[in-house]
């Protein structure tokens, strides 16, 4: 069934929107709308688990215990997660750390990044960390691609996790790759 009249009405609205003149009478933002919005487009090619392991500063298993928003971070505001690292694979990072991920919002600015993961307080994760040389905190390698959620049954889900793979097995795979890389380098 065709509805040409409805089409015309809706199309008119759509076209006006495409021209940037849409709904002028409604363009007054609500008082609580941030005056500035920042849209971060990040291109992250997928890569093998080996590449992630080799590139990670450390791989940690732990729990998100807090979150906040750092509007003053440069070059872009970040969400800062307080993460309790319970285990690690490279032996570097342990205990409470700050993990910074671009994105978040306050009353002045909203920063959106489609690739940024959202960590939930109380939820366990395996994170592939990258070091921030200018800040005593860490980032997540590959953002969502370096974030593995651990469910209540101890199974990880993420880019390179097998279906229903127990977290111990996944971390063992990570460690095995680390050992293999180290032995390869030493052999050279």
């Amino acid at each position: 069934m065709r509805t040409p009249r409805l089409s015309f009405l809706l199309l008119t609205s759509l076209l006006a929107g495409s021209l940037g003149i849409a709904r002028a009478s409604r363009e007054t933002p609500s008082p609580s709308t941030p005056q500035r919005q920042l849209h971060i487009q990040v291109e992250i090619p997928s890569a093998s688990l080996r590449t992630y392991v080799d590139s990670a500063y450390d791989v940690v298993y732990g729990r998100c215990v807090g979150t906040g928003f750092d509007a003053t971070a440069t070059p872009w505001p970040c969400t800062v997660y307080r993460f309790e690292a319970l285990r690690n694979s490279r032996g570097i990072v342990l205990g409470p750390i700050d993990v910074r991920v671009v994105g978040g919002a306050n009353a002045d600015i909203a920063v959106r990044c489609a690739k940024s993961p959202t960590l939930e307080i109380g939820q366990e994760y395996v994170l592939f960390l990258t070091e921030n040389p200018d800040n005593p905190s860490y980032g997540i390698l590959g953002l969502k691609d370096g974030t593995y959620r651990v469910n209540d049954e101890g199974q990880v889900s993420g880019l390179h996790a097998g279906q229903g793979e127990p977290v111990d097995r996944f971390l063992t795979r990570v460690s095995s790759i680390m050992i293999d890389t180290k032995e390869t380098k030493e052999a050279k």
Binding site: I40, V42, E43, I44, P45, A47, Y52, S55, A73, W76, C78, R100, V101, V102, C113, K115, S116, T130, E131, N132, P133, D134, N135, G139, I140, L141, G142, L143, D145, G146
Partner: peptide, 9 residues
Amino acid sequence: AAAGGPMAL
């Protein structure tokens, strides 16, 4: 650093 690290192209 907060946007994927070296994985970010």
